[in-house]
Write a protein that binds this DNA or RNA. Structure first.
Lengths: 133, 133
DNA sequence: TCTTTAGTAGTAATCATTACTACTTACAAA
DNA sequence: TTTGTAAGTAGTAATGATTACTACTAAAGA
């Protein structure tokens, strides 16, 4: 007999399913508000609090990753491997960097890394080219 | 004749002087509230808004650096060279890393880095040793 | 010494996020 | 299949770091 306490999986919820699938199918690191705005049309009863709560649940279950952006909305990522992000200050697009700084820190310093947030702000290649015109 | 518009230096203010010197003399990357709490004893009329305003002014003049900590208080740093930070989740101490990830990003990716924030959360050497006891 | 305007104290507002409350629903057991 | 219960939801209020506002103060050029 499985008691409630022992049940570790989450109960099914359509809202969480929708939110999770939205993150899985997006390539632009959406914020909670992005997700809410995009889904509100098809699911008018969806609440912003539900989006936040489920994103937190998905993060704590390790199904998605949170990207901390201190001066604005946090963003969410389907890529589970910890990695670094580039945020273009012109077009606001966020892209990925595959370099693992974590390994460098673990090796070079006596510091046991649990998680990290590396965000580089600058101008992406596309915006640089447009400036040259 | 120097008009107000042309005057680029800030007017002297005792509050800013005190706040700036506090950051210069600290090694633990204080937050605005840390600074306010530490100085309030000696300067009872000091306002938290003044601390925030002057920290922002000092950052925008390039005299100190802001370290963005998304889930809590931002912290401030006298070290002007951009660098990476380690934050111990046990003792909350913040320390510096001299590695320049900026150069790596600039070289390996077509991305013009303007600023960056790299924060590694984990357990510092001292806390690791205490866990072993 | 004036005059101007940057700076300050104290307080209200902002805004991303979380907490709360009454209602709804998944799902295990009867 | 029905029912009991606790997890999930919608809608709204609260939180908390930071910023804005307003009347007052003071640095410093004329």
């Amino acid at each position: 007999m499985i008691t409630t306490k022992e049940r570790l999986v989450m109960r099914y919820s359509e809202q969480r399913d929708i939110i999770y699938n939205f993150v899985l199918s997006s390539y632009d690191h959406p914020s909670a508000l992005d997700i809410y705005s995009s889904l509100k049309g098809d699911y008018p009863k969806l609440s912003l609090g539900t989006v936040y709560r489920n994103l937190n649940a998905l993060v704590s279950k390790g199904l998605i990753k949170r990207i901390e952006v201190s001066d604005g909305y946090d963003r969410f990522d389907k890529t589970l491997m910890e990695h670094t992000h580039l945020l273009c200050v012109k077009c606001n697009k966020m892209s990925d960097v595959e370099l693992s700084f974590k390994d460098i820190i673990n090796k070079e310093y006596s510091f046991k890394v649990i998680s990290y947030n590396s965000l580089f702000r600058g101008i992406c290649n596309k915006c640089l080219k447009e400036e040259e015109k």
